[in-house]
Simulated scan of single mutants.
Amino acid sequence: MLTDDTNEEDVSLFDAEEDAGRRSKTKNIKHPVASFFHLFFRVCAILAYFLCEHFSSNNFIGGMVTIILLLSCDFWTVKNVTGRLMVGLRWWNQVDDDGQSHWVFESRKGTKNSHVSDSESRIFWLGLIVCPVVWVIFAFSALVQMKIMWLPVVMMGVVLQAANLYGYIKCKVGGKTDLKNLATNYFGRQFLKQALSKDEES
Protein backbone atom coordinates (compact mmCIF):
# COMPACT_ATOMS: atom_id res chain seq x y z
CA MET A 1 0.00 0.00 0.00
CA LEU A 2 2.79 2.36 0.93
CA THR A 3 4.72 1.58 -2.22
CA ASP A 4 1.67 2.25 -4.41
CA ASP A 5 1.08 5.63 -2.75
CA THR A 6 4.69 6.66 -3.09
CA ASN A 7 4.73 5.57 -6.75
CA GLU A 8 1.59 7.62 -7.45
CA GLU A 9 3.14 10.62 -5.70
CA ASP A 10 6.35 10.21 -7.70
CA VAL A 11 4.41 10.03 -10.96
CA SER A 12 2.29 13.08 -10.10
CA LEU A 13 5.38 15.06 -9.11
CA PHE A 14 7.10 14.03 -12.33
CA ASP A 15 4.10 15.13 -14.40
CA ALA A 16 3.92 18.43 -12.52
CA GLU A 17 7.60 19.10 -13.18
CA GLU A 18 7.18 18.21 -16.85
CA ASP A 19 4.16 20.54 -17.17
CA ALA A 20 6.07 23.34 -15.45
CA GLY A 21 8.97 22.80 -17.82
CA ARG A 22 6.66 23.00 -20.81
CA ARG A 23 5.08 26.23 -19.50
CA SER A 24 8.48 27.83 -18.96
CA LYS A 25 9.57 26.79 -22.45
CA THR A 26 6.51 28.36 -24.04
CA LYS A 27 7.08 31.62 -22.16
CA ASN A 28 10.85 31.87 -22.72
CA ILE A 29 12.48 33.04 -25.94
CA LYS A 30 14.07 29.99 -27.55
CA HIS A 31 15.71 31.83 -30.47
CA PRO A 32 17.01 35.18 -29.18
CA VAL A 33 19.18 35.85 -32.25
CA ALA A 34 16.29 35.21 -34.64
CA SER A 35 13.98 37.35 -32.48
CA PHE A 36 16.53 40.18 -32.53
CA PHE A 37 17.04 40.14 -36.30
CA HIS A 38 13.30 39.77 -36.91
CA LEU A 39 12.93 43.35 -35.64
CA PHE A 40 16.42 44.73 -36.30
CA PHE A 41 16.35 45.22 -40.09
CA ARG A 42 12.77 46.49 -40.27
CA VAL A 43 13.19 48.96 -37.39
CA CYS A 44 16.51 50.16 -38.84
CA ALA A 45 14.85 50.70 -42.24
CA ILE A 46 12.10 52.80 -40.65
CA LEU A 47 14.61 54.84 -38.64
CA ALA A 48 16.84 55.31 -41.69
CA TYR A 49 13.91 56.59 -43.75
CA PHE A 50 12.78 58.93 -40.97
CA LEU A 51 16.29 60.35 -40.43
CA CYS A 52 17.08 60.67 -44.15
CA GLU A 53 13.78 62.35 -44.92
CA HIS A 54 14.05 64.95 -42.16
CA PHE A 55 17.77 65.48 -41.56
CA SER A 56 19.71 64.33 -44.61
CA SER A 57 17.85 65.39 -47.72
CA ASN A 58 21.14 66.36 -49.43
CA ASN A 59 22.36 62.74 -49.58
CA PHE A 60 19.27 61.16 -51.15
CA ILE A 61 21.12 58.43 -53.08
CA GLY A 62 23.00 57.18 -50.02
CA GLY A 63 19.85 57.12 -47.92
CA MET A 64 17.85 55.38 -50.63
CA VAL A 65 20.48 52.64 -51.09
CA THR A 66 20.72 52.11 -47.31
CA ILE A 67 16.95 51.80 -46.91
CA ILE A 68 16.61 49.40 -49.86
CA LEU A 69 19.42 47.21 -48.52
CA LEU A 70 17.81 47.10 -45.07
CA LEU A 71 14.40 46.27 -46.56
CA SER A 72 15.91 43.51 -48.70
CA CYS A 73 17.77 42.00 -45.73
CA ASP A 74 14.56 42.17 -43.69
CA PHE A 75 12.51 40.47 -46.41
CA TRP A 76 15.01 37.62 -46.80
CA THR A 77 15.48 37.15 -43.04
CA VAL A 78 11.78 37.10 -42.18
CA LYS A 79 10.82 34.91 -45.14
CA ASN A 80 13.59 32.33 -44.84
CA VAL A 81 14.71 32.29 -41.19
CA THR A 82 12.61 33.92 -38.49
CA GLY A 83 9.21 32.62 -39.64
CA ARG A 84 10.45 29.04 -39.62
CA LEU A 85 12.24 29.30 -36.27
CA MET A 86 9.86 31.52 -34.30
CA VAL A 87 6.41 30.31 -35.39
CA GLY A 88 7.04 27.21 -37.51
CA LEU A 89 5.69 28.75 -40.72
CA ARG A 90 7.24 29.15 -44.16
CA TRP A 91 6.19 30.07 -47.67
CA TRP A 92 7.91 30.03 -51.03
CA ASN A 93 7.40 29.72 -54.77
CA GLN A 94 8.35 26.62 -56.71
CA VAL A 95 8.30 25.79 -60.41
CA ASP A 96 7.29 22.26 -61.40
CA ASP A 97 8.53 20.19 -64.36
CA ASP A 98 5.91 21.70 -66.67
CA GLY A 99 7.11 25.23 -65.90
CA GLN A 100 4.07 26.05 -63.80
CA SER A 101 4.69 28.37 -60.84
CA HIS A 102 3.14 27.34 -57.51
CA TRP A 103 3.01 29.18 -54.18
CA VAL A 104 3.49 26.89 -51.19
CA PHE A 105 2.35 27.84 -47.67
CA GLU A 106 3.40 25.46 -44.89
CA SER A 107 2.79 25.18 -41.18
CA ARG A 108 4.88 22.85 -39.02
CA LYS A 109 2.81 20.16 -37.35
CA GLY A 110 2.47 20.60 -33.59
CA THR A 111 3.33 24.32 -33.57
CA LYS A 112 0.58 24.94 -31.02
CA ASN A 113 2.17 22.61 -28.48
CA SER A 114 5.86 22.59 -27.65
CA HIS A 115 7.61 24.02 -30.70
CA VAL A 116 6.44 27.63 -30.51
CA SER A 117 7.19 30.04 -27.68
CA ASP A 118 4.36 32.42 -26.78
CA SER A 119 6.81 35.31 -26.36
CA GLU A 120 8.42 34.67 -29.75
CA SER A 121 5.03 34.35 -31.40
CA ARG A 122 3.98 37.76 -30.01
CA ILE A 123 7.24 39.36 -31.15
CA PHE A 124 6.90 37.81 -34.60
CA TRP A 125 3.31 38.85 -35.28
CA LEU A 126 3.68 42.29 -33.68
CA GLY A 127 6.67 43.13 -35.87
CA LEU A 128 5.02 41.60 -38.92
CA ILE A 129 1.83 43.67 -38.57
CA VAL A 130 3.00 47.01 -37.14
CA CYS A 131 5.85 47.76 -39.55
CA PRO A 132 3.80 47.53 -42.79
CA VAL A 133 1.28 49.90 -41.19
CA VAL A 134 4.12 52.36 -40.54
CA TRP A 135 5.22 52.16 -44.20
CA VAL A 136 1.63 52.78 -45.35
CA ILE A 137 1.58 55.91 -43.15
CA PHE A 138 4.90 56.98 -44.73
CA ALA A 139 3.36 56.45 -48.20
CA PHE A 140 0.36 58.68 -47.42
CA SER A 141 2.69 61.27 -45.90
CA ALA A 142 4.91 61.30 -49.00
CA LEU A 143 1.85 61.73 -51.23
CA VAL A 144 0.36 64.53 -49.16
CA GLN A 145 3.66 66.41 -48.87
CA MET A 146 4.43 65.76 -52.58
CA LYS A 147 7.80 64.11 -51.84
CA ILE A 148 7.80 62.24 -55.13
CA MET A 149 11.46 61.20 -54.97
CA TRP A 150 10.83 59.24 -51.76
CA LEU A 151 7.68 57.57 -53.07
CA PRO A 152 9.39 54.59 -54.84
CA VAL A 153 11.39 53.83 -51.67
CA VAL A 154 8.28 53.95 -49.50
CA MET A 155 6.30 51.80 -51.94
CA MET A 156 9.09 49.22 -51.88
CA GLY A 157 8.81 49.13 -48.10
CA VAL A 158 5.05 48.63 -48.33
CA VAL A 159 5.29 45.89 -50.97
CA LEU A 160 8.10 43.87 -49.37
CA GLN A 161 6.66 43.92 -45.87
CA ALA A 162 3.08 43.39 -47.03
CA ALA A 163 4.25 40.36 -49.07
CA ASN A 164 5.69 38.72 -45.95
CA LEU A 165 2.56 39.58 -43.95
CA TYR A 166 0.28 38.10 -46.62
CA GLY A 167 2.43 34.98 -46.96
CA TYR A 168 2.45 34.24 -43.24
CA ILE A 169 -1.27 34.92 -42.84
CA LYS A 170 -1.85 32.37 -45.61
CA CYS A 171 0.39 29.92 -43.74
CA LYS A 172 -1.50 30.55 -40.51
CA VAL A 173 -5.01 30.14 -41.88
CA GLY A 174 -4.03 27.40 -44.34
CA GLY A 175 -2.55 27.67 -47.79
CA LYS A 176 -5.67 26.36 -49.50
CA THR A 177 -7.98 28.82 -47.74
CA ASP A 178 -9.06 31.88 -49.67
CA LEU A 179 -8.63 34.94 -47.46
CA LYS A 180 -11.62 36.65 -49.09
CA ASN A 181 -13.85 33.68 -48.31
CA LEU A 182 -12.42 33.54 -44.77
CA ALA A 183 -13.30 37.20 -44.15
CA THR A 184 -16.76 36.73 -45.67
CA ASN A 185 -17.45 33.71 -43.47
CA TYR A 186 -16.23 35.56 -40.38
CA PHE A 187 -18.47 38.57 -40.94
CA GLY A 188 -21.36 36.25 -41.81
CA ARG A 189 -20.96 34.44 -38.50
CA GLN A 190 -20.82 37.74 -36.61
CA PHE A 191 -24.00 38.94 -38.33
CA LEU A 192 -25.74 35.64 -37.51
CA LYS A 193 -24.72 35.88 -33.84
CA GLN A 194 -26.10 39.43 -33.58
CA ALA A 195 -29.38 38.38 -35.23
CA LEU A 196 -29.77 35.41 -32.86
CA SER A 197 -29.00 37.52 -29.79
CA LYS A 198 -31.66 40.07 -30.85
CA ASP A 199 -34.20 37.30 -31.31
CA GLU A 200 -33.44 35.93 -27.83
CA GLU A 201 -33.84 39.40 -26.26
CA SER A 202 -37.20 39.94 -27.97
Rank of each mutant, 00 (worst) to 15 (best):
I123E: 09
V104W: 01
P132V: 03
M64N: 08
V116D: 02
M64S: 05
N93Y: 11
S101P: 01
F50C: 02
N80D: 05
M86C: 11
I68V: 14
S141E: 08
P132D: 00
F105M: 11
L70Y: 10
V87E: 13
C73N: 08
L143K: 15
G83C: 06
I68S: 06
I61S: 13
K112M: 09
N80E: 08
N58L: 04
T82M: 02
W135A: 03
V116S: 04
G88S: 01
S114G: 11
G88Q: 06
T77L: 07
M64Q: 05
F105N: 03
L47P: 04
W92H: 15
A48T: 00
S117D: 06
N93S: 15
E120N: 01
K79E: 15
L126Q: 09
I67L: 04
S56C: 06
S117K: 08
N80P: 01
K109M: 12
T82S: 12
G99R: 14
S114T: 10
L69K: 02
F60H: 02
L89S: 02
V87G: 08
V130Y: 03
V87I: 15
V133S: 05
V65L: 07
L89K: 01
D118T: 14
T111K: 04
L126D: 09
C131T: 09
L128W: 03
N59S: 11
D74Y: 04
G62R: 10
V104T: 03
A142V: 08
N80R: 15
L89Q: 07
R122Y: 15
A139T: 14
G88K: 01
I137W: 12
K112R: 14
V81P: 05
E53F: 09
S56T: 07
V65A: 02
C131P: 05
G63L: 01
G99A: 01
L70C: 06
F75G: 05
E53K: 13
L126E: 03
F60M: 03
M64F: 07
C52T: 12
S121H: 10
Q94N: 12
N58W: 07
K79L: 11
T111I: 04
V81M: 07
S117N: 07
S117V: 01
S107H: 10
G62I: 02
L51I: 15
T77F: 15
T77R: 00
D97E: 13
K112E: 10
N113L: 08
L71R: 00
S119K: 03
S101H: 12
R122P: 06
L70G: 05
D97Y: 09
I129V: 11
G62M: 02
H102G: 05
R108W: 00
M64G: 03
W92P: 12
